[in-house]
Design a protein around this nucleic acid. Sequence first.
DNA 1: ATGACCAGTCTTACTGGA
Length: 259
Amino acid sequence: MRITTWNVNSVRQRLDHLLTVLREEAPDALCLQELKCQDDAFPRAEVEGAGYQVTTHGQKGFNGVAILSKLPLEDVTRGLPGDPADEQSRYLEGVIRTEGGPVRVASIYLPNGNPAPGPKYEYKLAWFDRLIRHVEGRLALEEPLVLGGDYNVIPEERDVANPDAWRADALFLPQSRAKLRELAALGLTDAVRACDDADGLYTFWDYQAGSWPRNLGIRIDHLLLSPQAADRLKGITIHRHVRGWDKPSDHVPVSVELA
DNA sequence: ATGACCAGTCTTACTGGA
């Protein structure tokens, strides 16, 4: 089965691209981030018309995550557990009951954290800690689990075209990278790195300063797999060409293929 | 030239993104 993650940067601005991705890529599940709309403004009918079930956790103006799936999404968790006061829509999880057994899928939009230091960076680190605690509990279920999302963390030097330009940024600070390693150390596999050692596997190019034509990208959209999912890992695809479409998102879809 | 953005909002200036 194929599971894709994509930060669409407004689902309403990107509806044509979304329908094209669904048609061309035909993922079994698509994790979306940055819907930038409330649930009732999601273009549900159009996506259902393409053959997908729609589960949203939206928010007015910014944030917002969704999971589109060919089969129903069950046992849904809206919002990251661990802080009832957190009103930002950045986490959605559910179970897809496939012929090969249940697969648990999450759509994650980890906070950006800039400027750092400051309250936004503190929120990012605290959110990371809650995610680690939550995932620890999910791993105890010993299920195939795919955590797809915009993690807003550049893992390593080889994941950024110009490391020095990002040295002081919340996406590349040592503490951010350490949190991502702490999460992975629970026993998760970075699907892209399990399949490809190359430099320059970028998933985001800024709209500014000619980042796309100059290929000044970063890798911040990740698919992390539980051991039961990693055992079934067949391959990954970074849909780089999508960044070249007219009026694109600044992120491109990333897919994992599981046996 | 060597880099000049984009989306949403109680919109005409700001916030947030990365």
